[in-house]
């Protein structure tokens, strides 16, 4: 009976996120592990094993969570794009290239052990990526909490993270072109990747050659219209990317870079942060 009202399930979910975030802030830790645990407990493999009720037991709630989680990824990568420092990349490119290349060695343990256990290249590549990439969110929070920001070691870490951000964008484009397509022949996978890359190139062309378009798009006095235009554009670009078989996260990252270079950066961060946080939380369910 409890499981028949999707809104009730969503309410339970958000309350669980609020409790998780509260606990995280009480213990002064990142909220990510707390969200993972909330999602585990309330999901089909947590209380769902014991009762008929769990978050996502109705199809309505299930679909909402599925799409909400996708929006969470889109907003996360969009924000990452907005705060991605092209300036830092340009100024320290030599250093970033060196530490970043050394850092690529971290693909090795996952790929090797993954292949050893599963004898499958794709599984090994997946585990390699999962193991390679450090957490920008948790590391930035720890740097602030410990008061290490603006030390030489913090600079080193942030430069590594800049490289990793770029590496993961390339990784996600390749991965989604491969595992999300029904195609089986190498030629059709390659043409798939080709179309997706063409879309990216067009997007990047506009970011570099016509930055004023983005400025004009977001230029409005009404803060309501501002939000609608920003989210509408993000959604449309992410959607087109998905239709073309490109990772929506990667597209959102580039829209973030484009928007981050406009004069509206601070306003965007303020106006869209609650979307990022809410849908980012749903991602854990």
């Amino acid at each position: 009976m409890l499981g028949e009202v999707p809104i009730f399930e969503l309410g339970v979910m958000i309350v669980a996120l609020a409790l998780g975030a509260g606990a995280a802030s009480y213990f002064n830790k990142s909220d990510i592990p707390f969200f993972i645990i909330s999602g585990m407990i309330l999901g089909p493999f947590g209380i769902g094993r014991l009762w008929e009720f769990h978050v996502g037991s109705t199809t309505g709630a299930e679909h909402f969570i599925e799409i909400g989680a996708e929006l969470g990824i889109i907003f996360l990568l969009f924000f990452m794009g907005m705060s991605f420092s092209l300036k830092k990349l340009r100024e320290h490119r030599g250093k970033i290239a060196v530490v970043g290349t050394i850092d690529l060695l971290n693909f090795a343990p996952g790929i090797l052990v993954g292949y050893l256990f599963f004898q499958d290249i794709v599984v090994a590549f997946l585990i390699g990526g999962i193991v390679y990439i450090s957490s920008s969110a948790v590391i930035s929070k720890s740097l602030m909490d410990l008061g290490w920001e603006s030390t030489p070691e913090a600079d080193q870490m942030l430069e590594r993270l800049v490289f990793e951000d770029l590496a993961i964008v390339i990784y996600l484009s390749v991965l989604s072109a491969v595992i999300l397509s029904e195609e089986t022949s190498v030629v059709s996978i390659l043409s798939h990747v080709g179309v997706a890359m063409l879309f990216l190139v067009i997007l990047i062309f506009f970011i570099y050659m016509k930055p004023e378009y983005f400025n004009r798009l977001l230029k409005t006095r009404s803060s309501e219209i501002f939000v609608l235009r920003a989210v509408g554009f993000i959604g449309l670009v992410a959607g087109v990317a998905m239709i073309l078989g490109l990772s929506e996260a990667v597209a959102a990252f580039f829209v973030g870079i484009a928007f981050g270079a406009t004069e509206h950066l601070a306003k965007l961060q303020q106006a869209l942060y609650s979307f990022r946080y809410l849908f980012g939380g749903i991602f854990f369910f």
Partner: peptide, 13 residues
């Protein structure tokens, strides 16, 4: 400092 893994690993998952 670099040991922590998080959101991106989960996105890959």
């Amino acid at each position: 400092g670099m040991i922590t893994r998080g959101e991106f690993s989960l996105i890959i998952a």
